[in-house]
Amino acid sequence: MADRKYTEDHEWVEVDGETGVIGISDYAQEQLGDVVFVELPDVGKVLDQRDEAAVIESVKAAAEVYTPVSGEVIEVNEELNNDPSLVNSDAHGEGWFAKLQLTDPTELDALMDEATYKTFVESLS
């Protein structure tokens, strides 16, 4: 079972060995409303933790998505180009953004686990 971790900016990373898949949380997609476009990073791009990894657009807003972990982009979710609504319908699954080859797995230790994030989100409302 892969391990999913969260940031306070509502990004998640799901780690499987030395790679991690990143996306935004269900809470974040609800706040954004209907997603109309996702600008994905180029494959091969090397990102430091907290670098801008993607830009997500709703009709009236644009939000930067920062990578929770450092790594090289090895794959992006091309399906989002055809159907950005996947971010709304399945933020934790089909709505993933990119897959990274992790360069510093110790970064994961500082991120929130599922339960902590759940408590964090509840504290926001």
């Binding site: 009709v59 807003a61 644009a62």
Partner: peptide
């Protein structure tokens, strides 16, 4: 449409 390109939403970006 595609207003998120524009200054009133994106400001300095």
């Amino acid at each position: 449409t595609l207003s998120t390109r524009e200054q009133h939403i994106r400001r300095e970006k």
